[in-house]
Amino acid sequence: MIFEEEYYAAGAPARVSQNGIFLLAPTLFAHGTEEQRARLLPRMARADDVWAQAWSEPEAGSDLAAIRSVAVRADGGWLLRGQKTWSSRATYADKGFGLFRTDPTAERHRGLTYLLFDLRAAGVTVRPIPQLDGEPGFAEIFFDEAFVPDADVVGEVDQGWRVAMSTASNERGLTLRSPGRFCAAADRLVDLWRRVGDASEAAPADRVVDAWITAHAYRLRTFGTATRLLEGGTLGPESSVDKLVWSELDVALHETALELLGAEAELSGPDGPDGGRWLSGYLFSLAGPIYAGTNEIQRDVIAERLLGLPRGDRR
């Protein structure tokens, strides 16, 4: 947390390695073999291998357990068949990780396996998808008999759901969405307000105050989460709270900045104020309530697993 706080306060850039170090690495710590950790982690840390996640499929978005892509037994490993989509960073990444159906007779959450694959391997095709903000941030991946050796199975075969979910909390808070990132953005917003805000207008000032309060609250809350982890606790459904907090904060923060910027707010790229960072940050923030499990799914998790309300029509 301290490193992340300083990293973002210094205005350091987003890290190309983040999906590896924040999502796959914790999974390998918990479920990987000694051999996998020794082979994969140093190259990941040096960004020699850039990793992409591959969870969603055309028919499996919020309903992730509807995954159809399969891994079929082959000599010494598995052959992948199917399609993944909205794969962040796959456009330029070297390797990917995701869930594949290994037991075609099993239903839903059962019979899935957590596999690592080479994005440059024969039988793998990557098609970039331009995003709302114009960046090729995510891609479709097509698998046509792409080979994965047994050494690249993480955890037990057919136990992939448990493996993936045990570290899904990392994406919802704490590391990948460290408070330092939002505290730094809130500080920049305060700075913007002091530079361009009209002191006689209370409404935008209140929005600045509320964004700062939420960032400050998220930071303190994460101290509490860190304390819980240090004392032997685990990240559970509570991380859905974090995901709602940072994703909505990020949108509110950038909306407030655009409000403060007046007519200049629509100017994009180098034509825009502060090099266009507020507008690009705003466009990026709009994805937050969708990825890492939509905010609707997170609210379901909170209602059912933390408040104990009955499950609805979802299976």
């Binding site: 309060i213 709270v241 609210r299």
Partner: peptide, 22 residues
């Protein structure tokens, strides 16, 4: 069991959980 109710109460939970550390 209705989502409109669930989500409203989830938002209350989030607001309370965020106010506590402050």
């Amino acid at each position: 069991s209705f989502q409109a109710v669930k989500h409203r109460l989830a938002d209350v939970y989030v607001a309370l959980e965020l106010a506590r550390p402050l």
